[in-house]
């Protein structure tokens, strides 16, 4: 068998593909979060940032989108295949089972992942294509003539269920990263031997920053800091 085919078919190969695509995702959410936080500087700042991504940097944006789309497809496909595999690996389950050390984060990777997938679709439809438009902000522009991302954010997050959906999704993202950021590095074999291999300080920091950074926006709107 061709060694690359063998690699792809192996559980480790699939895990490595998941890890790499996951790390791409982590890189993206950190950038995205940094972009979002400009909302605290003001309407002008974030709207012109949005305009820059769609104007002069459009090719770069599309390239990144392409990479991300591939990463998401690979990540989801591998997750699906591996989940099928692990279900098949234990056809008769235990009647009693008490997890000892596995974290909530690790045990919710599947359902959290599904929630995130739904969230990503909704989120793109909401802020990118504006197909979903709870606040009635579709096509609005600011005084500069830029698309009014800022206004959409503020108006949308003033609707309680939109804000709640985002806050819940970001909790799921934080949990997903708390396990994923750590596990992907270990899966790729970069882990240094440790007396406490289950400790994951860096992943905790990454997850906390990403969660906090994204959550600040709806919370800021609700608290009236962003108006």
């Amino acid at each position: 068998m061709n060694s690359l085919v063998a690699f792809y078919r192996s559980t480790i190969g699939k895990k490595i593909l998941m890890a790499v695509s996951g790390l791409i995702g982590i890189g993206f959410v950190i950038l995205h979060m940094a972009g979002n936080l400009q909302v605290f500087i003001g309407q002008n700042k974030i709207n012109s940032y949005g305009a820059m991504l769609h104007g002069p940097l459009a090719e770069v944006t599309w390239l990144l989108r392409l990479v991300l789309i591939v990463a998401v497809i690979v990540h989801v496909l591998m997750a699906y295949q591996l989940t099928q595999r692990s279900a098949a690996a234990r056809p008769i389950d235990y009647q009693h089972r008490s997890p000892q050390v596995s974290t909530l984060a690790s045990r919710t990777m599947k359902w959290g992942g599904i929630l995130l997938l739904v969230f990503i679709v909704v989120h793109i439809l909401h802020f990118t294509t504006e197909a979903i438009d709870p606040a009635g902000w579709r096509g609005m522009t600011d005084s500069q003539g830029h698309r009014d991302v800022y206004g959409n954010i503020v108006a949308s997050f003033r609707i309680w269920w939109v804000a709640l959906f985002y806050i819940v999704a970001m909790l799921a993202l934080g949990l997903h990263l708390y396990h994923g950021a750590w596990a992907s590095v270990r899966t790729l074999g970069f882990a240094k031997p440790s007396p406490h291999p289950l400790h994951r300080r860096i992943a905790l920091v990454v997850a906390a920053i990403v969660w906090l950074g994204f959550t600040l926006v709806p919370v800021g709107v609700i608290a009236g800091i962003i108006r």
Binding site: T11, I12, P99, V101, L198
Partner: peptide, 20 residues
């Protein structure tokens, strides 16, 4: 690794339960 896979074992999610 290929033998391990062909025996029908699942993959590693790094739950850490095995070590425990």
């Amino acid at each position: 690794v290929l033998q391990m896979d062909s025996e029908g074992f699942g993959h590693c999610t790094l739950y850490g339960e095995c070590q425990e």
